[in-house]
Every structure is written in structure tokens, then in C-alpha cells.
Amino acid sequence: MLVAPAVLIIAGLRLYPLALGVNFSFTGDGDRNGQAVGLDNYAVLLDDPLFREAMGNVWLLVLLLPVAVAIPGMLATFIYLRVPGHRFYRSVYFFPAVLSPVIVGAIFNLLLAYDGTVNTVLGAIGLGPVDWLGDPDVAMFAVVGVHVWATFGMALVVFLAGFSTLDSALIDAARIDGASLSQVIRHVIVPGLSRTIQFVFVTTMIGMLTSMFGLLYVMTGGGPEGSTYLPEYYIWIQQGQMNRPALASAASTVLFGVMLVVGLAQIAVLRRAGRED
């Protein structure tokens, strides 16, 4: 009885629409609207190079995850070790986190344009222009780079919070014993922060998989050559621009499956981390 309201809300507003969506993915679009078509939509998805590209990009994001975690980790370490001007850097690093993806995207559209600031600077030091958003081999990395820049401030704050629990006596002891900076980081800071690092891994992963849409929409529109498609963007295009809502439902179901696996894996990681203490 006590859990009934929560169960009702979850069942009515989450599970029921989810079931409807999955059911809808087994129907057709256009002329076959409303007819049961079995697994046809999923076959279309498997056959669509664009969808495969989008799923491939999800794995690319997973591969880039360590970089996205290492950057705020390193910067937080420097701030913790009180490099000169660390107070200034702390606020500067956090600043992009308060900007909306659309604004960030618009700013970097100007900077990364072919005749934009970045290429002008590169030209001044004698390096050829790079078509940051027009070269399919570069564009995805450019967008992920901007995403990391825009969001690492939050992870930085989490790292700093983790540092505050670190026993500074350990670091002092290591220094007295003659440990170098890299040895301090490797043998004292990283083991002491293992739970924080795991937490940042999980939240950064979620951030990458769920909040890249705005940036993609503003910066590349999925292009060039479809190289920056992510499943969310694919779903949006199929539903709205191509008028194929059932196919979009099928893609949503696949994305849901992937997120489920990723989410369960993350819960497992967090549980294990919790047991270690």
C-alpha cells in the first residue's frame, strides 16, 4: 500500500509508454501504417549504414571515456597540489559547465569554421588548415572534444570533493620519503581516490550518451557524411524529417537495450566499489 503510488506512477508514466513504444516498433510506416510487420524495422536498421555508424560512434564514445575522465582528474590534481593561481583556475575550469550546449556549439562553430579562429592561429604558426567540422575523420573528435571541454568542470568539482577526503599526511609522508610528483599521483592519490574515479566514470559515461544531442544538432547536424550520427540523432531524424515513427521506435528500442546493458554494468561497478570499503 505504501509503495502503491510510486509503483503506479512508474507503471503508468514509464513502463506503459515503454511497452507501447516497443509494440509500435513492430508496426509499419507510411503505406503499412498500423500493420504488424514483425521484425522488418529491425532488419531495416541492421541494413542502414547510417544506423550502424551511429552505433559505432557509441563505442567510440566508450573508448574515449578514459580521456574524458583523465582530463578533469589531472587538472583537479594540480589544483589540489596548489599550483600557482589554482584559485583562479578552479573557477575558470568550472565556467563552461554553466553554458547550454547550444551556446557552446554556436561558439565553437565560429572557432572551428574553415575560415575560423583556430585555423587562423594554426596558419600563423605555419600549420595547414584543418576542416574540423567538415572532415569525417575529424568531426566526431572535434565534437567530443567540445563536449568534454563543456562538461569537465562538473567532474572536476567531484574530484576536488574526493581530494578533500584524502589524508594530506600521506602525501607529506611520501614527499619526505623522496617520492616524485608522478610517484605521488600513482601510489598515493589514485588509490585514495578510487571510488571517486569510478563515480566520475559512470556519470561521464551517462553524460556522453545522453547529452550530446544539442551539440551535434548545432555543430554538425550528423554530418559530414553521417560521421557524427548518434542513435538519439538518428531517432529524431527518422521520426521528424523522414516521417517514419515506427522505425524510430525500433531504433529507440535498440538504444534502450544498449543503455540497459551499460546501466547494469555501471550499477555492478558501483556495488563492487561500495563493498571494497
Binding site: L112, A113, Y114, D115, P129, D131, G134, D135, P224, E225
Partner: peptide, 12 residues
């Protein structure tokens, strides 16, 4: 113009 693939038609 250079970078046609990264130049938006509307309105660049």
C-alpha cells in the same frame, strides 16, 4: 569556397 562541407548554407 574552401570547407564547403562545413559551411552551412543558411546563412554562411
Amino acid at each position: 569556397n574552401d570547407g564547403a562541407n562545413s559551411t552551412a548554407m543558411f546563412n554562411d
